[in-house]
Amino acid sequence: MTSCHIAEEHIQKVAIFGGTHGNELTGVFLVKHWLENGAEIQRTGLEVKPFITNPRAVKKCTRYIDCDLNRIFDLENLGKKMSEDLPYEVRRAQEINHLFGPKDSEDSYDIIFDLHNTTSNMGCTLILEDSRNNFLIQMFHYIKTSLAPLPCYVYLIEHPSLKYATTRSIAKYPVGIEVGPQPQGVLRADILDQMRKMIKHALDFIHHFNEGKEFPPCAIEVYKIIEKVDYPRDENGEIAAIIHPNLQDQDWKPLHPGDPMFLTLDGKTIPLGGDCTVYPVFVNEAAYYEKKEAFAKTTKLTLNAKSIRCCLH
């Protein structure tokens, strides 16, 4: 018999989150649709729960009410004593943790798909938090293969000092899905179709896995975050240069030392320094102006996964 890495157990509980950011409308629209008619997301033997994560922000069509829901799922915020004085999103995070967690427990949901849009030209993107997770690498390989020839990129946010504390991190297997470009507060049919297909293929993978299909060893190309880059700023902290036209919409493309990065209003080009080629992502993302992030630098690498098969009882 072929030796293989056996994944822990079959997958039982899956959640699909929309509206973690209330103005990213593809996930909101799909989740609302699936709450009314969820036939397309159901798979035999699998509990799939669509869920609106930040209903107040969705109602106002804004990213958040008090603070970013997708950055506060750490033990400090989840452990705060519940009171009306807490920011709305912290209270909501505790409610979500109660419903789908608790985080880092045996009772937490197996998989959470968190649906997002970006204003950046990132196409279909899967966000991975753990480079050693054979199950998710296999799932992402399946999704990428199923979507081809449509490109699907994998963004690895594993980093020693950049801690995200994402909404989906309460699950055993957290999956971020990011599709763009799409303006905030807008629905685009092409973007919706791409996100819908990503979810379909992900659920198909889980179904095949649960039925005992063995997935042979595989490898995927990923883009691992190195650092986030702020806009150049003046002495008052105001933005002093904008994304250069040569960099705009060039997510995932190589940016070499000396290539144009920013452009000042008086026409001066600010190039990339250093001696390493990087791959920019979230270029000129609207939501990241407040976070002082013009783009993120990534490096390209390959992740390998062992063969996996479900432990059938």
Rank of each mutant, 00 (worst) to 15 (best):
288 Y>W: 09
144 K>G: 00
174 P>N: 15
53 T>C: 12
198 M>G: 00
292 K>E: 08
255 L>R: 02
254 P>C: 05
296 A>C: 14
215 F>I: 04
51 F>V: 10
24 E>G: 01
285 E>D: 15
154 V>P: 04
45 G>V: 00
73 F>S: 11
119 T>D: 01
187 L>K: 03
154 V>D: 02
230 D>A: 13
97 N>L: 09
194 Q>W: 12
64 Y>M: 13
127 I>Q: 06
130 D>H: 01
262 F>M: 04
176 G>N: 08
206 I>Q: 00
142 Y>G: 03
130 D>N: 08
177 I>N: 05
27 G>P: 09
57 A>P: 01
272 L>D: 03
61 C>R: 14
290 E>Y: 08
72 I>A: 14
135 F>H: 00
203 L>S: 01
246 N>C: 09
3 S>D: 15
215 F>M: 04
221 E>P: 03
131 S>M: 09
184 Q>F: 11
45 G>L: 00
205 F>E: 05
197 K>C: 11
302 T>I: 14
47 E>P: 05
281 V>C: 15
266 D>C: 07
11 I>N: 00
231 Y>I: 01
246 N>M: 10
247 L>S: 06
213 K>N: 10
153 Y>H: 15
297 K>E: 03
251 D>A: 03
260 P>I: 02
83 S>L: 13
168 R>S: 11
11 I>K: 13
7 A>G: 13
122 M>V: 15
146 S>T: 08
17 F>D: 02
53 T>P: 08
263 L>W: 07
147 L>N: 05
252 W>A: 00
269 T>W: 00
178 E>T: 15
124 C>S: 07
30 L>C: 03
180 G>I: 05
234 D>N: 11
203 L>K: 04
55 P>L: 09
285 E>H: 13
140 F>K: 02
282 F>R: 15
241 A>H: 05
26 T>G: 15
48 V>T: 07
229 V>W: 00
310 C>K: 15
186 V>L: 10
47 E>I: 11
259 D>L: 03
229 V>H: 01
107 D>E: 14
73 F>A: 11
214 E>Q: 09
157 I>F: 10
160 P>E: 14
117 N>K: 04
255 L>E: 05
183 P>N: 07
148 A>W: 13
275 D>W: 04
153 Y>M: 11
89 E>C: 01
87 P>A: 13
240 A>E: 08
302 T>Q: 09
267 G>I: 02
127 I>M: 09
158 E>D: 12
210 N>R: 09
177 I>A: 04
100 F>N: 03
109 Y>F: 12
26 T>F: 01
62 T>N: 12
71 R>G: 14
46 L>H: 02
32 K>P: 05
222 V>Y: 04
12 Q>N: 15
20 T>N: 01
268 K>S: 09
43 R>Q: 01
74 D>Q: 12
192 L>K: 05
9 E>Q: 14
56 R>I: 11
12 Q>P: 05
95 E>I: 09
191 I>G: 03
69 L>C: 04
280 P>F: 03
114 D>K: 01
161 S>W: 07
56 R>T: 11
67 C>P: 06
106 E>F: 11
156 L>A: 06
105 S>N: 13
138 Q>L: 01
249 D>V: 00
290 E>P: 11
147 L>R: 04
165 A>R: 14
224 K>S: 07
193 D>C: 11
199 I>R: 04
59 K>C: 09
155 Y>R: 15
99 L>P: 06
90 V>A: 11
203 L>Y: 04
79 G>E: 13
205 F>C: 05
126 L>N: 05
167 T>G: 11
186 V>K: 04
213 K>W: 12
227 E>W: 05
246 N>Y: 09
60 K>W: 09
142 Y>Q: 03
152 C>G: 03
169 S>H: 09
84 E>Q: 14
100 F>Y: 10
101 G>E: 06
161 S>L: 09
47 E>W: 07
253 K>M: 10
95 E>F: 09
234 D>S: 09
247 L>Y: 05
14 V>A: 07
221 E>M: 00
245 P>C: 01
268 K>V: 09
57 A>W: 04
10 H>D: 09
248 Q>V: 09
16 I>F: 03
274 G>I: 02
104 D>L: 13
181 P>K: 04
195 M>A: 11
233 R>Y: 06
36 E>N: 12
197 K>F: 08
76 E>A: 12
307 S>R: 12
143 I>W: 05
265 L>D: 02
26 T>A: 15
90 V>M: 13
192 L>N: 02
138 Q>W: 06
196 R>C: 03
226 I>A: 08
55 P>A: 11
129 E>T: 08
251 D>E: 04
40 E>Q: 00
267 G>V: 06
286 A>G: 13
82 M>G: 14
97 N>H: 14
68 D>I: 03
270 I>N: 03
291 K>M: 07
170 I>G: 05
28 V>G: 13
44 T>P: 15
122 M>D: 05
26 T>H: 04
295 F>P: 06
160 P>M: 08
72 I>G: 12
295 F>I: 04
49 K>L: 09
119 T>C: 09
52 I>N: 05
20 T>L: 05
38 G>S: 13
293 E>Q: 15
245 P>N: 01
203 L>G: 06
248 Q>P: 03
141 H>V: 02
110 D>A: 00
96 I>E: 06
139 M>Q: 03
223 Y>D: 00
286 A>L: 05
39 A>Y: 10
219 A>D: 14
37 N>E: 10
240 A>D: 09
100 F>V: 06
200 K>R: 11
169 S>N: 09
212 G>M: 01
301 L>N: 02
172 K>I: 02
257 P>A: 04
98 H>E: 14
22 G>M: 09
145 T>D: 09
265 L>A: 12
270 I>W: 00
265 L>M: 14
181 P>I: 00
227 E>R: 01
237 G>R: 02
66 D>L: 00
237 G>F: 01
310 C>S: 15
179 V>W: 05
157 I>S: 15
88 Y>K: 06
77 N>C: 12
6 I>S: 15
68 D>T: 02
85 D>G: 13
139 M>D: 06
62 T>V: 14
36 E>T: 10
279 Y>K: 03
74 D>R: 10
160 P>I: 07
184 Q>A: 14
107 D>W: 11
167 T>F: 09
157 I>W: 10
194 Q>G: 10
155 Y>P: 03
27 G>I: 03
97 N>F: 09
48 V>H: 03
50 P>N: 01
107 D>M: 12
313 H>D: 15
258 G>A: 08
15 A>L: 03
310 C>Q: 10
267 G>D: 07
6 I>P: 15
238 E>D: 13
110 D>M: 02
240 A>R: 11
225 I>M: 15
187 L>I: 13
